[in-house]
C-alpha cells in the first residue's frame, strides 16, 4: 500500500503531497516526539495532533511514510512549505486517531 491509497480509503485531505508513492508498512500513533522517534518503525503512517515544524524533522529522520493529522488539526503554510521541501507527505482528517487506526487496520 502507498500513501496515495490512503486518500480514498480514509477520505483524508492532502495538506502537502510530498511523496505519495512512498510505501506504507505499518502505523504508529503518538504526540511525544522522542517516544515516536524511538518506537515508530520505518514506513509507518504517523498519526498525531502535533503540527509544528519539529514534527517534520521527526517524520524525516524516523522515515515514516507520512504524517496524518487527526481531529481536523491543520498545519500552517510556512510549515507545509518546509514539508514540501523535504518531500514529506502531510495528510489531514477530521476523524480521531482511534477511528483512523481502525480504518488503517482493515487496509494493512
Amino acid at each position: 500500500m502507498k500513501n496515495k491509497d490512503l486518500l480514498d480509503a480514509l477520505s483524508c485531505t492532502v495538506l502537502c503531497p510530498g511523496n505519495l508513492d512512498k510505501e506504507i508498512k505499518g502505523c504508529y500513533i503518538g504526540d511525544l516526539l522522542s517516544w515516536v522517534m524511538g518506537r515508530a518503525q520505518e514506513g509507518d503512517i504517523w498519526i498525531t495532533i502535533m503540527n509544528h515544524v519539529n514534527v517534520l524533522a521527526v517524520a524525516s529522520l524516523a522515515d515514516v511514510s507520512c504524517v496524518l493529522l487527526a481531529e481536523g488539526v491543520t498545519m500552517e503554510e510556512p510549515v507545509l512549505q518546509k514539508a514540501q521541501e523535504q518531500n514529506i507527505t502531510v495528510l489531514q482528517s477530521s476523524k480521531t486517531a482511534y477511528q483512523l487506526a481502525a480504518c488503517i487496520a482493515q487496509l494493512l
Binding site: 511525544l32 522522542s34 517516544w35
Partner: peptide, 16 residues
C-alpha cells in the same frame, strides 16, 4: 507543549 520532554531522548541515543 510541543511534544518534547518525554524523557526518551537519551534512552533512544543508547538504544540506537
Amino acid at each position: 507543549a510541543l511534544g518534547f520532554g518525554a524523557g526518551m531522548g537519551l534512552p533512544n541515543m543508547k538504544k540506537y
